[in-house]
């Protein structure tokens, strides 16, 4: 049982992070906390992807070691696939990180607009103001 948990522990870590983020997004009453929850949530997905790329057994960062010029000059160099980790998830996550930052930026700008209008960022106070003024 313990071995089973350890052999897949990357999944447990990301599931816990994802659920923390999701709970903060849905359950918290403060809009900034919701936003931080959103960041945790997206980070969990990013960690999940990065963990897919890992290869055990001596694999290293996906940068060609050795004489690049020589290998390039001689055409098809024989490169052992098992000695480098999978670069694709890293590429995807570079994009996803940027997307997550952009979303956070836009959300913060929206929060500024909300604060200008209601002078608060607490969900229940905003709902009360909306009820009172009818907007």
């Amino acid at each position: 049982m313990l071995e089973y948990i350890i052999s897949k522990y990357n999944f447990w870590v990301y599931i816990i992070l994802l659920l923390i983020g999701l709970y903060a997004m849905l359950g918290k009453k403060n809009l900034v906390k919701k936003l931080i929850g959103m960041n945790i949530f997206q980070s969990a997905v990013i960690l999940f992807y990065v963990s897919i790329g890992v290869k055990k057994g001596g694999a290293t960062v996906p940068i060609f070691m050795g004489d690049a010029h020589a290998a390039h000059g001689h055409g098809q160099a024989i490169i052992d696939v098992a000695s480098y980790i999978n670069p694709l998830p890293h590429v995807l996550m570079l994009t996803a990180i940027v997307v997550s930052i952009a979303t956070t930026g836009v959300a913060l700008a929206v929060l500024i607009l909300i604060f200008r209008r209601y002078k608060t960022l607490e969900l229940d106070e905003i709902i009360k103001i909306r009820k009172d003024t009818g907007v």
């Binding site: 979303t103 959300a107 700008a109 607009l113 209008r117 905003i126 909306r130 907007v135």
Partner: peptide, 21 residues
């Protein structure tokens, strides 16, 4: 959407949360 009429920013924030999920 956020630059619409009165309640727009708040409605948009909900949309951001749900859309991101």
């Amino acid at each position: 959407m956020a630059i619409g009429r009165d309640g727009a920013p708040f409605a948009t924030f909900r949309y951001i949360i749900m859309g991101t999920i």
